[in-house]
Nucleic acid binder design. Structure first.
Length: 761
DNA sequence: TGCAACTGTCATCTT
DNA sequence: GGAAGATGACAGTTG
């Protein structure tokens, strides 16, 4: 059963708050329904309010005994002040986007790019307000035009952006008022409301049964018999209420009733009005305050006392983060203190920081005559949202004090936020905003784009692979992919290497003597005397705190040098296309540690090649694809000795790279095993701790059970009035919860007897 | 000079 | 069956 009861007042007010937060002009309009003195009391400038005044007002207006009490008056007054200052409460973009990001891709997500949408929407709404006819007070929605306005209004609120915002508010409110509020989303088509629905007195709530018969209105508090009931407040109409009545589980369009701002007459909507949209709107907007047995104001005060400084600091940090991110449109609520000052009770309102009312929207005014009743058009019309699932979650947590967490939130507040996954996302987003993306994450993302590792083992998550992209001996695509990765990660180095690569690719067939001399002066294969790859200490930079990085003293990623130039004393009369491609696409990055042996190895083969006058370079021999390599050998007139040496050079060159890659893989595997070992040890320690705790609990239970047993037997007596010996008797628990005392000896004999029987049988 | 780390090479196996 | 890759073993080089 839906307990609207006396807390409906605040629910309606907060409905208006929600609507305001959505950027829709909201006139609370309660003053129309309330006695003038109430309006003055709630909305007036005077802040003096005594209990006597309230009692006098109650007596003067002959209020119903179930009328909201004094505490609610204070609360309502505070909330009205809150509504008035909504245009100055703001939310950080970080928080909003955090929630939006964490939403799954669906009808509720991804369509709310930024707050500018709201601003634009609100501005557009103002323009529409100025152009559309005004609905005066007392008018009844009896024309098709007015009905269309309602439809637009509903559609407008049914937009996905609004839904996202409302859900955000839902979570924010739920986290800030644990156990205080429940959204009406628990009432859906599937839910059945109890037959007795009590309406709070003195509120502009009017209920009709399916026969459009007025059954509850005004200050009465009747018992309403309804099969299904949903109540909502549309957009720009001042507290217009829609009641939709369902019969046999199906909404009846003709039973959707709309009440204009001041009229107590309910007008049915057009039968063509699609009911599901209304239902979505209803289940989205309305929430009510759940009655608690304790003093509400006291709890409210307690909660706010704890919540306020933390939330304020949080908002301030978010605002700073936004400023750092050049999102200067979000600021700290400037009038937060003013807002608090408006509450004589000292209630510190939590800053939900949703500024969706722009300055173009006229602020809330106590002057009821200034309320315009313009209807916004549904610029954000969209399909219905399945909000029931999302809004089905309510956050009602117990209110208990806890130690303040490391993040500055009180324990219970932090738990709430963590439950909603807000705190983590906010922290994550803050961290990213303030510090930028982590280099290792960035590097990881970059490396993952390198589809070809040339390795069969799982090294993609191997730490060392981050800084040392594998360049395997493979196709040109492999090289290009690696070159791409290197270009992304080490752009500076690649620039130079690209130059070298391009130089190598543009090498012509003939090699002049001058070039030969230059290369001899360089003393390195292909003229790559300068290592292009970053040194291995980059690993330590990317993974600070990991000791194993220090043990990687060299780069285990190897490849053949590019085919930039022939070896000294050799000619390169044939520079095939693939060779040029291979040479140009390969990043000219060679670790310093591997360069010297490479040069040395080249010198050894160089001498052999020079001795046999082999006209091909070392890189050409090694890197050429097998088809082209065979074509090269067949097209050249070489002796058998030369052919043998060329094949040996090719075999050794390839094997050298293979060995280097193999060693790197081995290291990676070793490191991965070490990590697994650490994780397993940690898991084992946790299991052991859990085992110890279980044994401790078991021992405790045994002890308590023994004490209980002794206590029971101490009160039992035999037929002679002597106490029973617990060692001779035992308790038997019957199937019908009966407990009998039986002799252990007799039971043992019985068991033996049964055993004998079983054996005999 | 001894040592550890690194590297090239060979043999062998697998793909 | 050959080519290429993978890998263990060994030896040379280097700091």
């Amino acid at each position: 059963m839906l307990h609207i009861k006396e807390y409906f007042t605040e629910g309606l007010i907060q409905m208006a708050i929600l609507l305001s937060l959505c950027g829709v002009r909201v006139h609370v309009g309660l003053e129309v329904f309330l006695p003038p003195s109430w309006c003055e009391l709630i909305l007036g400038p005077t802040s003096a309010l005594t209990h006597t005044q309230i009692l006098n007002l109650r007596n003067r207006h002959s209020l119903h005994p179930k009328m909201v009490d004094l505490d609610q008056f204070f609360t309502a007054r505070r909330l009205f002040g809150w509504v008035r200052s909504l245009d100055q409460i703001q939310v950080s973009q970080a928080e909003l986007e955090t929630w939006l990001v964490q939403q799954e891709v669906g009808p509720l997500s991804g369509r709310f790019p930024d707050q500018n949408f709201l601003i634009d929407r609100t501005l557009g709404q103002v323009e529409r307000d100025q152009s559309e006819p005004t609905m005066g007070q007392g008018e009844v929605l009896d024309s098709l035009e007015e009905e269309e306005q309602v439809c637009q209004m509903i559609t407008h609120h049914n937009g996905q952006h609004d839904a996202s915002l409302l859900f955000y508010l839902h979570r924010k409110l739920g986290s800030c008022f644990p156990g205080r509020f429940n959204f009406l989303t628990t009432i859906t088509v599937q839910d059945k409301i109890s037959e007795n629905t009590t309406v709070v007195a003195g509120l502009p709530v009017t209920l009709h049964n399916p026969g459009c018969e007025l059954i509850a209105m005004g200050s009465a508090a009747p018992n309403v018999s309804l099969e299904r009931l949903t109540v909502s407040v549309p957009a720009s109409f001042s507290l217009k209420i829609i009641i939709q009545i369902y019969e046999c589980g199906a909404p009846l369009n003709e039973n959707i009733y709309v009440m204009s701002e001041v009229s107590t007459v309910w007008t049915p909507l057009s039968p063509s009005r699609p009911a599901p949209d209304v239902l979505t709107l209803i289940t989205t907007l309305l929430f009510f305050r759940e009655p608690l047995g304790l003093d509400l104001e006291l709890q409210w005060q307690d909660l706010m006392d704890i919540l306020e400084p933390e939330v304020t600091n949080r908002v301030r940090r978010d605002a700073n983060a936004c400023e750092n991110s050049r999102m200067d449109s979000w600021t700290i609520p400037s009038n937060y203190a003013d807002l608090l000052d408006e509450n004589p009770g000292g209630d510190n309102l939590a800053v939900f920081s949703m500024d969706l009312l722009t300055q173009d929207i006229s602020p809330f005014s106590s002057d009821s005559s200034s309320y315009d009743l313009k209807t916004p058009s549904g610029s954000q019309a969209s399909g219905g949202n399945d909000l029931d699932q999302d809004f089905g979650r309510t956050s009602s947590s117990s209110f208990e004090l806890a130690e303040e967490g490391a993040d500055g939130f009180p324990g219970h507040i932090r738990d709430l936020l963590e439950n909603l996954n807000i705190l983590e996302d906010i922290q994550l987003l803050d961290g990213q905003l303030e510090e930028g993306f982590s280099p290792d994450v960035w590097a990881e993302a970059e490396v993952e784009t390198d589809s070809d590792s040339g390795l069969s083992l799982d090294f993609i998550h191997s730490p060392s692979s981050f800084s040392s992209p594998i360049v395997s001996e493979g196709s040109a695509d492999d090289s290009s992919s690696c070159a791409s990765a290197v270009e992304n990660v080490f752009s500076d180095e690649v620039d130079s290497s690209d130059e070298d690569g391009s130089a190598g690719s543009h090498l012509e067939v003939e090699v002049t003597i001058k070039q030969e001399e230059v290369e001899e002066e360089m003393g390195a294969v292909g003229g790559h005397g300068v290592p292009q790859f970053p040194p291995n200490h980059e690993d330590s930079k990317l993974f600070p705190g990991f000791s194993w990085v220090e043990h990687i003293g060299h780069d285990h990623t190897y490849y053949n040098p590019p085919l930039s130039s022939p070896a000294p004393g050799t000619m390169s009369p044939i520079q095939t296309e693939s060779a040029v491609r291979a040479g140009s696409t390969r990043p000219c990055c060679l670790s310093s540690s591997s360069l010297a042996p490479e040069t040395k190895a080249w010198s050894r083969d160089e001498e052999r090649a020079r001795a046999l006058r082999i006209p091909f370079s070392y890189q050409l021999i090694v890197n050429l694809p097998v088809e082209e390599f065979n074509h090269l050998l067949s097209s050249s007139q070489l002796s058998q000795q030369q052919l043998t040496l060329i094949r040996d050079i090719r075999r050794r060159g390839k094997n050298k790279i293979a060995a280097q890659n193999c060693r790197k893989r081995k290291l990676d595997v070793l490191l991965a095993l070490e990590e697994d070992l650490k994780a397993l040890r940690l898991h084992r320690s946790k299991l052991l701790q859990e085992k110890r705790n279980s044994l401790r609990r078991l021992q405790d239970m045994k002890s308590r059970f023994g004490k209980l047993y002794q206590e029971i037997f101490s009160q039992l007596e035999d037929d002679n009035g002597r106490p029973l010996d617990a060692t001779e008797y035992t308790l038997r628990f019957g199937p019908d919860d009966t407990v009998t005392v039986a002799s252990i000896r007799a039971s043992q004999n019985g068991k033996k007897h049964q055993g004998v029987k079983k054996r005999r049988s």
